[in-house]
Design a protein around this nucleic acid. Structure first.
Lengths: 106, 106
DNA sequence: TTGACATGTGACCATTCGGTCACCTATCGT
DNA sequence: ACGATAGGTGACCGAATGGTCACATGTCAA
């Protein structure tokens, strides 16, 4: 299977998506920080972060005994580009923007 | 779990992504058509299409005894928008466009 | 250096998932 | 009406996945 498989498998889990959400709000979080945001043991969170890192959705930097986690949006954009061409993008993004506006979640 | 869960779970399987690729090339395909594109029994393909349909990634229309399948890009755009804001989108799409151009896969 | 803190590894178990099959329904052409 | 064609359902099995724990490593601070 290709490289992209890791990305899709990584995104398939709700806990991993929640972790991405937290990192989207604020980057550079540590494992302990993320652990406190999720109802799960430290080991579970670590395992999920590992999967996200292998997929390239999260990149890390060590700082002393801490490991800082950052969100990488590139693989997500590539998912988008796989099934939405430039022409379709205009129509679809207009749609979703409108939806967002109507829902007031913008 | 939320609605989006179906979408991500649907995208997690390589066969389902391949089916989306075929529908991206050409819409309105029938089950038998798609079956011939994949190394799998008819039942497997049917099961996968069902998952894609439940996720809203594929919409269908019946025509006589045939069922026609169409790709729906909206859920994919929503995935994109979840972790890529308008500001980041400019930088990231510039990057991926460049990558695509260098690879000559445009 | 010693204890506390932050992170990492491998094995383990319950559940979910991918794929197939026997069997069934509906529509087309003649 | 009839056979042939297109699609659909439920059960079943082997494989992969999510989550936890006992145990281990590396780093800070006094």
């Amino acid at each position: 299977m290709g490289d992209d498989d890791h990305v899709f498998k990584a995104l398939a889990d709700p806990t991993r998506r929640l972790l991405l959400d937290r990192l989207f709000e604020r980057d550079g979080r540590t494992l302990g920080d993320l652990e406190s945001q999720v109802e799960m043991s430290r080991f579970g969170v670590m395992k999920h972060l590992r999967v996200l890192e292998d997929a390239g959705l999260v990149v890390t930097r060590k700082s002393g005994r801490e490991k800082l986690h950052y969100l990488n949006p590139v693989p997500i954009r590539l998912v988008h580009d796989r099934w939405i061409d430039k022409y379709t993008e205009r129509r679809v993004s207009a749609l979703t923007d409108l939806k967002r506006e109507l829902e007031g979640t913008a």
